[in-house]
C-alpha cells in the first residue's frame, strides 16, 4: 500500500510540478524579475512621476530557473503525498476516487494551501516589507491546517456540528489575523505587486486542478504492490 501511495503521488506531483514550473516561468517570473530591479535599486518608483511598466526581459538563467523547476517539482510531490494519503483515507470511508472527483479535490487543495493563506499574506514580491518570517510561517501552517480540516468537515461531515466547526475553522485564522509589519517600506509600484499576486494565485489554481486530477488518476490506476 505504501508503494502504491508513493508511486501515484510521485507521478502526479512530478508531472504537475513541471507544468506549474512552466506556467510560473511564463506568467509569474517576469513580474518577479521586474520587482528585483526595484529591490536592488536599479529602478526607483517615484510616485506621481511614474516608472516604466515594461522592462526588457532578461536572458534565461539556466541555473536559477533549473533550480526553480526542481523545487517546484519537489513541492508538488510533497503536496501529492499528502493529497493521495487523504484521498485514500476518504476511500476507506466509502468515498469513490475518480479523476472527475480529483478536480474538486484539487480546487479544495488550492483553497487550503494558496487561497486561504493569501487572504492574510498575499504572495509577496521580493522587496516587500513583512513581519518576522517565523511568525508568518506559523500563521501560514496554522491557516493551511485549519482550512484543510474545514474542507474535510464540509465535504464528509453529516451534522450541523461538523459544518459549524468547519465555519469556525475557516474564519478563525482571519479573525486572529496574519502578522503584518509595523511600517510599510516597499519600493515596488503597487500595480506590479497586484499583477504578481494575481498571476501567482492563477498559476496555483491551474496547478492544483492538474494535481487533483492526476493524483486521483494515478491512485485509481495503480495496483497494490
Amino acid at each position: 500500500m505504501f508503494t502504491r501511495l508513493v508511486t501515484s503521488a510521485l507521478f502526479a506531483g512530478f508531472v504537475t510540478g513541471l507544468i506549474a514550473a512552466l506556467l510560473q516561468l511564463v506568467f509569474v517570473q517576469p513580474h518577479l524579475l521586474h520587482a528585483e530591479l526595484y529591490e536592488s535599486g536599479q529602478l526607483a518608483h517615484a510616485g506621481a512621476a511614474g516608472s516604466p511598466a515594461h522592462v526588457p526581459s532578461e536572458p534565461f538563467d539556466i541555473q536559477r530557473n533549473g533550480l526553480s523547476i526542481l523545487f517546484t517539482a519537489l513541492i508538488y510531490c510533497g503536496y501529492a503525498l499528502i493529497l493521495v494519503a487523504i484521498m485514500s483515507l476518504s476511500e476507506d470511508r466509502g468515498n469513490r476516487i475518480t479523476p472527475r472527483q480529483g478536480l474538486v479535490w484539487g480546487v479544495a487543495g488550492f483553497i487550503a494551501v494558496h487561497f486561504a493563506p493569501a487572504v492574510g499574506l498575499p504572495p509577496e514580491l521580493p522587496g516587500s516589507a513583512a513581519a518576522d518570517v517565523g511568525l508568518r510561517q506559523t500563521w501560514w501552517f496554522s491557516t493551511v491546517a485549519a482550512t484543510a480540516l474545514a474542507g474535510w468537515l464540509l465535504a464528509f461531515g453529516t451534522s450541523w456540528r461538523a459544518w459549524g466547526a468547519a465555519i469556525v475553522l475557516l474564519a478563525a485564522p482571519h479573525v486572529i489575523g496574519a502578522p503584518h509589519p509595523d511600517t510599510f517600506t516597499g519600493t515596488t509600484p503597487p500595480e506590479l505587486v497586484g499583477l504578481f499576486a494575481g498571476a501567482a494565485l492563477g498559476v496555483g489554481l491551474a496547478a492544483w486542478v492538474v494535481l487533483g486530477i492526476l493524483s486521483a488518476y494515478f491512485w485509481k490506476n495503480s495496483a497494490d504492490a
Partner: peptide, 14 residues
C-alpha cells in the same frame, strides 16, 4: 535555491 518558487507559491519568504 528555492527563492523564486517560494515567492511564486505564496510561502512566507525572508
Amino acid at each position: 535555491a528555492a527563492h523564486d518558487v517560494r515567492h511564486a507559491t505564496g510561502f512566507p519568504c525572508h
